[in-house]
């Protein structure tokens, strides 16, 4: 430390100590940074902590997504049915377009921006590895997608309980639907995240994700429709492996009260469906981590 009152020798430069102090307290580690990043990311996915205009889209989509469940609630109250008009597991299939648009439109918020604007290097300048960054972002989108998927289930469950339907049966069905929702959220998050981290143009990432999810599903549905007409449902069963929504539909038919064309009929096929869902999710997550590691090393 330099004494500011001491005479400076001729020709010698000096920086005076004006009393600025660096932070010397304890610093949080990578885990805390990752947690903060994940929580902010989750909030950002719904536009919280962002401008007012960014809140419009996610909340409009969320409202649209809950709309059928609210109607079901109203119907239950007014007419008093003895079972839910739409099953828990069926719900995600019914609203798959909204769900797809939500994931596709919010994934770029979390995955594209830092890459496009180069702000990723600011994060990586902290004690935060690229893979941890990727995992935190992924967890944020996963949580947002889960909220999107689980809210209607919770709403329907509440309606069912208030309508005094059989508690054990409803709990079991809702539980299965939650498990299925987790599987679906995993795969949607992986696909949307991977595409958004690859294409940093927002609009393009959105359309590409939708194309993969909905056109993929469209093709599989077409093949399943034809194969069931032709009496070759085994072909449709295999075709179902090739898109996230058809995988979900297949498993939902096998495990819950959902009707779909050419569902998996054997235990082995069911296991394969679940395996492909999980494997695809893991592969996408791996791709994400790899992508950000490459960015970090570039």
């Amino acid at each position: 430390m330099t004494d500011p009152t001491s005479a400076t020798p001729e020709g010698r430069s000096v920086i005076h100590d004006l009393g600025y102090r660096p932070y010397t307290g304890a610093r949080l580690g990578e885990g805390s940074i990752a947690r903060a990043l994940a929580v902010t990311g989750f909030r950002n996915a719904f536009g919280l902590g962002r401008s007012g205009r960014s809140k419009v889209l996610p909340f409009v989509l969320l409202a649209l997504n809950l709309f059928p469940a609210v109607i079901v609630g109203g119907v239950m109250v007014l007419i008093g049915l003895d079972e839910l008009p739409i099953s828990y597991a069926q719900y995600a299939s019914t609203t798959q377009v909204i769900l797809g648009i939500f994931v596709a439109s919010q994934a770029p918020v979390l995955f594209s921006r830092d890459l496009r604007h180069g702000t990723i290097s600011l994060y990586l300048a902290r004690p935060l590895r690229a893979s941890t960054y990727a995992l935190a972002r992924w967890a944020a989108l996963l949580a947002a997608t889960l909220v999107f998927l689980l809210l209607p289930i919770v709403l329907l469950y509440a309606v069912a309980l208030l309508g005094e339907l059989d508690v054990t049966e409803q709990t079991r069905e809702a539980g299965v639907a939650v498990a299925l929702a987790v599987l679906l959220a995993l795969v949607l998050t992986g696909i949307a995240g991977l595409i958004s981290s690859w294409s940093t143009r927002r609009g393009f990432a959105v359309v590409a994700t939708i194309a993969v999810l909905l056109i993929g599903n469209g093709i599989v549905t077409a093949v399943q429709g034809i194969s069931s007409e032709e009496g070759r449902s085994d072909v449709g069963e295999v075709a179902g492996l090739f898109s996230p929504y058809s995988l979900y539909r297949g498993l939902a038919t096998a495990w819950a009260d959902v009707d779909a064309l050419t569902p998996p009929t054997s235990a082995g096929m069911e296991a394969l469906y679940a395996l492909v869902l999980v494997g695809l999710s893991a592969a996408c997550l791996g791709g994400l981590v790899w992508r950000y590691r490459r960015v970090a090393s570039a």
Partner: peptide
Amino acid sequence: GQGYEAVANLGFTLALPIVALLAAAAVLGP
């Protein structure tokens, strides 16, 4: 003729609007 309806539906209700959207967005959006 088998499966005609399914393929045409896919091409018309999904692929066509998505292509139109991608094209229109690409010429002006960015």
